[in-house]
Write a protein that binds this DNA or RNA. Sequence first.
DNA 1: TATTTATAGTTAGTATACTAATTAATTGTA
DNA 2: TACAATTAATTAGTATACTAACTATAAATA
Lengths: 162, 162
Amino acid sequence: MQIDEKTLISAYLIERTAKILKQSFAKDLLENGIPVTVDQWIVLRELDREDGFSQQELATYTHKDAPTLTRILDLLESKNYINRIKSKMDRRRYLVIITPEGKKLVNTIWPLVYTFRSRSFNNIELQDLTAMDKVLNTINDNLNVAKNEIKFNENAETFINH
Amino acid sequence: MQIDEKTLISAYLIERTAKILKQSFAKDLLENGIPVTVDQWIVLRELDREDGFSQQELATYTHKDAPTLTRILDLLESKNYINRIKSKMDRRRYLVIITPEGKKLVNTIWPLVYTFRSRSFNNIELQDLTAMDKVLNTINDNLNVAKNEIKFNENAETFINH
DNA sequence: TATTTATAGTTAGTATACTAATTAATTGTA
DNA sequence: TACAATTAATTAGTATACTAACTATAAATA
């Protein structure tokens, strides 16, 4: 097998696996009657970790753009899981706060996440995982995207889809 | 570092890299004045490889669902890159055909793809790539999705985002 | 053959990614 | 201070993913 064909399959696998990870966890949420989507969960989880962010900060941490975050927050607010509070320091900003109901929902979801993670990464050897991370980091470097990014090992939890 | 934290970072990297691969190639298309999106390219490329498929077959090969494919074909048809021809054997079906203009566009895009692939997979060692593929295949197996899938090495080209 | 069931494709509606434009408020500067 | 530039958030529009419902046709079966 030639290197070209090899990288083609690898790129396919990266894209396919990312899609499957998201779809599978979405299915888990649905089957457990969780009334938020995967992307809403990402935002809610971050707010549970620490709230009072401006929307801009929250967008950065969750790797969502401003318009997308606006709509996700609209949905979360209509379900009473978050609130927007006008900042007194800067009246252009809102501080985004998670509600008690939001915190309660987050606690319901975490066990599903842990189960999902151990299921998806079952039977994988640590040395292979290390090699994969090396490849993925290299691709990211090659595509010149890591520069303004928050370090992976500090903030992976705020972006990952589950 | 514990295994839990390790898998968290790995999952983050998979999802992030998939996103970056797509975004970067989309940027390449845009900067080169290519008048189709990445997903339209995926469909067009498959039709250039072999056309005359029904939409259902095309949907399977490109990993798109029927409504998504309908809309992508609508866009490609309005740009005169493909045509739908009513099947005489089964009048529910269309046969999807690439036009000469479509073929011309595909030939314009291929060089961008090869450049993109070698750029993104630069500085990567073959043994690490092999380990990564092993991990990704295991995750796919763990999430029970490989069963009805076409074998990766036969059809990666039809799905990959670039 | 008539009816039921299944299939191909489309349409409609929601959620998210992305770009561009808009509004309101703040900051920088002449 | 007045004006210009910047920033935070929203709104609007296009593209795609996903689900559900619908139309037309074909296949299965009573």
